[in-house]
Structures are given as structure tokens and as C-alpha cells.
Design a protein around this nucleic acid. Sequence first.
DNA 1: TCTCATGTTGTAAACGGTTTCAACTAGGAG
DNA 2: CTCCTAGTTGAAACCGTTTACAACATGAGA
Lengths: 335, 335
Amino acid sequence: MTIRDVARRAGVSVATVSRVVNGSKGVRPDTKRRVVEAIADLGFAPNAAARLLSGGSHKTVGALVPGFNDSFYGRVIRGLDDALASSGYALILACSDGSDELEESQCETLLSKGIDGMVFIRGGRRTDSLAEKAGARVPVVSIDREAPHGLWGSVTSDDRQGSFEMTARLVSMGHRRMAFVGGPDYVSAYRERFRGFQERAESVENGAEPLLFQGDSRYESGYALASDLLGRGTRITAVLCANDYMALGVIRGLQDSGVLVPAQVAVAGYGGEEIGLMVRPSLSTVSQPAYRMGIAASELMLDSLLKGIGMRGRSVTLSPLVVERDSTGGRRSLS
Amino acid sequence: MTIRDVARRAGVSVATVSRVVNGSKGVRPDTKRRVVEAIADLGFAPNAAARLLSGGSHKTVGALVPGFNDSFYGRVIRGLDDALASSGYALILACSDGSDELEESQCETLLSKGIDGMVFIRGGRRTDSLAEKAGARVPVVSIDREAPHGLWGSVTSDDRQGSFEMTARLVSMGHRRMAFVGGPDYVSAYRERFRGFQERAESVENGAEPLLFQGDSRYESGYALASDLLGRGTRITAVLCANDYMALGVIRGLQDSGVLVPAQVAVAGYGGEEIGLMVRPSLSTVSQPAYRMGIAASELMLDSLLKGIGMRGRSVTLSPLVVERDSTGGRRSLS
DNA sequence: TCTCATGTTGTAAACGGTTTCAACTAGGAG
DNA sequence: CTCCTAGTTGAAACCGTTTACAACATGAGA
């Protein structure tokens, strides 16, 4: 079933069929009708590979996602897709499931589909080198991960600021001894979140090292760390976690040890996951502008695709929003 | 940068380069070395479109996902991807975001990438007609949605059975007046879940119509329906929801009205979402074998792709698992 | 030396579209 | 009637690969 079959059936040349299929003008109405009929009769659908080969583009951007557990990814994807779609571009995804090897092969898979651009969302240990390789072929934007030396486009939210502000809120509520539950070190976002915490906490703890507990970003690790938090000599009154799932884990862990949240210990998360509204106590968190990050990444991408603007050094940083809910709400401000 | 450039640089013909690139044998070692060097020097990467056009296949399957809020989708995707990858197939995704129009265009996008097969996960009102169109081009499998007249492959879990069993558990715990919170009617899974509930509940309620409250599958609708549940004359002691998010909403709604869960009203969800473990009371639910559903769908697909087995009438039904946790645990069995 | 099998390499024809350019048509102006 | 222009249409080149087949070289066996 090729364009030639259609041409034969309609009694015209392949060029004419191509024109009809692509809506080019310069085809007489009745000729066009004949062709359209032939297409319908034969159920013809143009071969994408041939089309792509012969000059065109798929008008498609690929995105590599670590997984779908965090609603963050879903919101980013919606932003990406909405903005790309309005310029006629499509988005296809591949899932690395947080594995470094898988990430590499999935990246190759996407690239081999003839995509026009590539978006990396967060990613793992080796994502930078992948992005560099991909960058040699198509424009690249990374989301929620800093591009080393500004080698490609990046969209982040100001994790340091968000963390700083949330910590400041905790301090203003009277907390003096606080702990941070961190995530894997190779995620720049997690490092920044600790930095923001550190910067605000330090000034209030008279030189005591800010307490850092290392988690793996999942609920279970938060749950497990709860007992470590309690085991400390100094009494911790507030905990900021590098993401919402660990925060939930910490809350459950504390509760299962008989500690009241927020009355005895305040707990805050980071990310603005929707689940934070569905739990009791509802979770205080720093909400990431995920949807807008997707939009911003698309805009960077479209600048490059449509206007040929290079990616080098282009980066956008959005501001997160501190959302106070019940998990930090038990204490009244002492100031 | 084409195969011709490489050929020129290595001083061989394009055929030889192609042989080296594809690892075909019949190339002298030193010739091969020269070609490999030329490829490395030039940074050559074969053009996928040309490759695809000239006989090959991408070895790629596409999947259409409604969204990424439910962890169900993530688990299915992992199953799909794992099983496909072990046969050398890749998976690419597109997200319909629950919108019917978007679903159509995304489907077209995937198809136009030259995929070898198509998987529909759940889907919306118009998914069947889309699947039919897609089925004319490539093998199709639908997950968690029945294929009308067995026109293409389908993998479901036995929603009626799961619902029936959970209801039976509630009955055996002494509940006599129960309600069901349903989801959108066009999702066959939701209809089946109601049927299972109905079948078991009827026999215990002396001919009273089983109570059905219609939700939209989201947390908020569950929350909103909680007051309706309370408004009933008859006192409801147990609620089964068509999915976990609505169940969480119902629980929060009841709690906010001062009703104790599970002491006064037992609430169960459906789906086995991971979030069910992170809330208090932890959520009783019917766990869907999502990962295994992904695996099963891949197997159907690979049967068709590798062995040429037709899809018509092929369907797999897996058994869900009743998971009792705290949200139904307050009552002791009266039997 | 001739023949033949074997191993290596090159030529050219697909694959299914898009697009350039030339050719043809019809109609209006001069 | 001739010339020119605008509107349609078709022939053929091209996109970058794979692969069937032909061609050639080499060494062994007769």
C-alpha cells in the first residue's frame, strides 16, 4: 500500500498524490477529490520513515523520564506536551526506571526514532555524559538538573531558595534544632536543597553542624531514618526532607514510635506532590512549579527548533512556593 | 554524515561499511578495522529512517497511557518494558492525559513513528475505535480494558472477582449495609468492580438495591461523596470504592465529618496503589497485578511480532489479591 | 596450467515518500 | 492569430540505508 498504488487508482502521478496528502495547493478540485477517494478506498497511510528520510522531520521531541512514581514527572510532562503541541510538536517518552544502563539504551532508542530534540528529566549518575552525546545530534534541555558548564539548556527551580525559605519558616516558628533528610548525592536538586537548609540552619544553631541524614529518596528510607532521628542526643524539633515521600516515611516512622507530628516534631517535605493533601496531618512542603518547568523547557526547545537559537548557556530558574499545611502546624511562632 | 562519507574515508564501498555496522560476517579483519576507524573519526551514526525504510524494523512497541498519577500505570509500564526489552524490543510512550482528542493525536503520533505494535492502557471513551484503526496497521493489545468482540488482544485482571471477594470479606466481618463508590462508566474495569460488589452485596441485603454513588475516579470526588454517604437514611457501615484515590477521599471526608474509620465505617479501595501504605489508617484494597499485566501484554505482543500469532480473541485475565489493612480492620468478625 | 571453490568486495536496485523542474493546458491581452 | 501567464500535472532525482548479485582474487586440486 504505497503512494504509487493510490496514484494508479486515481489515475494521477505520485507527485499529485503527495500534494494532496500534504495539502499543498495547485491541485484541481476534482483531481483532488479523485485522489482523496482513492486514499479512502485503499486505506492508505503515508510511510513515516520514507517521509522522514526524504527531507522532512517528525516534529517530535523525546523525553527521558526516570519513572512515574512522583507526580512531579506527570506534571512536567503535561507542561512539556501542552507547550510543544501548541507549536505542532509531539512528545514521546521513554522510562529509565532509575537504572543507569536502562537510561542509556532508552536514550538511544529515542534518538534512533529521529526525534528533533531531547529532554532529560532529572536523571541518574550518568545522565550528563548521555546528554552530551545526545547534544551532538539534537538540541538538549535538562529539567531539574543543572547542565555542567551550561553545555545545554536547563530548567530548574531554585531548590536552595525553596529549602532556605522553608527552613526560615521553621525557625520563625521557634525551632532551633533541626535535621535534614537528604536524597542521593548525584541529584543536584537534592544537594541544593541541603545547601539551602544548611545556610539558614547554621546561623541559628551556634556553630553546631547541621544534622544530615542520608536517605535514598523513597518512603521506606524515610520511615527507617525516623528512629535514627530519635536516637540523637540533642532533641530535634523539626525535620526537613529532600522530598515528600521521605517526609511521609519520617512522619509514619515517628508516629509509630509514639511521637506526635507536628506537636512534638514538625516535618516538612519538598516537591509539592499531590499526595501531601491526602494524608493526615497534611504535608507542609515546598511546591515545585513542575508544570511551568515543563512549559519553560518546551520554550527553550522551540526557540532552538524554530528559531535556531543555540542551547549553550540557556537556563531558566523558577521559584518554588512554600506551602504550609498541618505537618508543621502544631507549634505557634515564638518570635 | 552518511555511510558514503565513511566509505570514502575508509576507501571501501558502502556495502562494506553497512556490513561492518551491522556485524555481518565476510569482511576481512583489516578492512573492518579501517572502517571502524573511519566511523569513529567521523562520528557516524546510521540514519534510523533510512534503515527502517530499507526493510528493517525499529523493534519498538508504543504504548498510550492516560496519565501518570496512578502508580498502576508505572507498574504496568515497568512490566511491559522489562518483558519487551528481554526480546530486544523497546517501548515508547505517549500520554493522553485523559483527554479524548489528545488520545487520538497521540495515537497517531506513535503510529507514525513506525512502531511494530501498540498497547492501550485503560483509555477513554473513544479508545475502542482508535484501537480498531491502529489494529489495521499493527498488532494491538489493550490493558485493563476489554476488547469488544475480542477484536484484539487484551489483558485484564478479574475486577468482578476482586470486588466480589473484598465485599465478601466485608460481609464476613459483619457488614450488612454497604455502599459502592463507582468511577466513570465508560471504563469497563469500573463497571466490573461494581458488578462484583453488587453480586455479593445483594444476597445479604434482602433485596434492597445496592447503594451506588457515582464518582469521577479522583480523590476530590471521593471526598465530596463522603457527605452523601452520611446523608443516607440507612446507616452504611462499609464502603467499597472503585479505586484507591476515591477511597482516600472518602476516608478523609468521613474523618472531617467526625466519623471514625474503620471503627464506625470501614472503607476499602481498589487498585493496590502504593500510597495505601503511606496513609493512616492504611488502606485495605484489592491489589491489581499491574506488573504481571504488563508482562502478559508483552507476551501477547511478542507472540504476534515474533511468531506471527494473530491477536483476535487472545485475552488473558489475571487474579487480583485482596489486601486487608487498617481501613477495614476496626470491626471484629461477627460470624 | 586449468578449473573450481571460497572468501572478499563492489555495483546497483530496491524501500516510499518529497520536490524540482519541465511540459502542457486554457484563457486573456494585444 | 499570436504571445504570455497562471494554473495543473508528471517525470525523475534524491534522501541513506540494506541486500541480491556480480566480479574479482586467491589457493587447492587435477
